[in-house]
Simulated scan of single mutants.
Amino acid sequence: MITVHHLENSRSQRVLWLLEELGLAYTVKRYARDPRTMRAPPELVAVHPLGKSPVITDDGIVVAETGAIIAYLTAKAGGALVPPSATQAHMRYIYWMHYAEGSAMPPLLIKLIFSRLAPGSPWLLRPLIRRIADTVLRGFVDPDLRRHAAYWETELAERPYFCGADFTAADIMMSFPLEAFAARGTGAGPQVRAWLERIHARPAYRRALAAGGPYAYAGGSPAA
């Protein structure tokens, strides 16, 4: 039996959604973030040495990293939600599966970290740290995010899903960065908003929300 070690408000929500789309049986073990640091609890180290989510166990097999989990589960389901090989859609599939974590997530994580620097610093240093953080965000991170957002708009204007006319696991992979981007009010365009509406309307997406519990990014709502 597949067990999803699910951390609240994390990338592991994508794994629950994928399992619902594939119709594979699974159980969920939930973990709460540390309320002060917002990091995963140490109990996850017992599952995988890095102590992060997502991670799944399946009859003694441990699989971590969203992309690796998606590859494992889609193969287990006979290649469902993966475009046929040697097609343009399959090449786009490979690209977006790597792009989601390799290119889209880093600037979003940097923005999150720098936005939290000043509030968590000693009060005497806060004005200086805030100025440094604002300089980095305005000069480097925000322009990079605008470039990515424009790229998403162009791609989604040409096709309803990232790989083409059909929904694939690459859309599941891309959901977290685009949901996080939209939730932080950073200027999601009409094509991204329409795509988010399409994926959020899928019955499997709604079932995954019920399985995983509260998810701050559903519907593009701000994170708690």
Score class of each variant (00 low, 15 high):
Thr66Pro: 00
Ala150Glu: 14
Ala133Met: 05
Pro127Ala: 09
Arg159Gly: 07
Gly139Val: 10
Phe176His: 09
Trp96Gln: 02
Ala75Gln: 14
Ile70Ser: 02
Phe162Cys: 00
Ser121Val: 05
Phe167Glu: 07
Met97Ser: 10
Arg126Cys: 05
Leu156Val: 06
Arg147Phe: 06
Arg126Pro: 02
Ile129Ser: 06
Trp152Pro: 02
His90Leu: 06
Glu153Phe: 10
Ala182Tyr: 00
Leu145Arg: 00
Arg130Ala: 15
Phe176Val: 05
Tyr95Asn: 08
Leu125Pro: 01
Ala68Tyr: 04
Glu101Asp: 15
Arg130Cys: 09
Cys163Asn: 08
Phe162His: 01
Arg126Tyr: 05
Gly120Phe: 10
Leu73Thr: 09
His148Pro: 01
Ala71Arg: 13
Ser121Gly: 06
Ser121Ile: 07
His98Val: 09
Arg131Trp: 12
Ile70Gln: 02
Gly102Cys: 05
Glu153Gly: 09
Gly79Phe: 12
Met174Ile: 03
Ser115Thr: 12
Leu156Phe: 01
Gly120Thr: 15
Arg126Ile: 00
Asp166Ala: 15
Ala71Asn: 13
Arg92Trp: 05
Arg116Gln: 15
His148Met: 13
Asp134Trp: 03
Thr135Ala: 15
Tyr161Gly: 01
Ser115Ile: 02
Pro160Phe: 09
Ser85Glu: 15
Arg130Val: 07
Thr135Met: 12
Asp171Leu: 10
Leu124Gly: 14
Leu112Asn: 10
Pro119Met: 13
Ala89His: 04
Leu73Met: 05
Pro160His: 06
Ala182Asp: 09
Leu128Met: 13
Arg126Trp: 09
Ala86Met: 09
Met174His: 06
Ile113Ser: 11
Ala89Pro: 00
Leu156Lys: 04
Ala183Thr: 05
Trp152Asn: 00
Ser85Met: 13
Pro160Thr: 12
Pro177Glu: 05
Leu73Phe: 04
Ala68Pro: 01
Tyr93His: 13
Ile70Trp: 01
His148Val: 10
Pro83Met: 08
Ala80His: 03
Phe176Gly: 02
Ala77Gln: 03
Leu128Gly: 11
Ala150Cys: 04
Pro83Gln: 06
Pro119Gln: 10
Asp144Tyr: 14
Leu108Tyr: 12
Phe162Ser: 00
Gln88Thr: 14
Ala150Leu: 12
Leu125Ile: 11
Ile94Ser: 06
Pro122Asn: 05
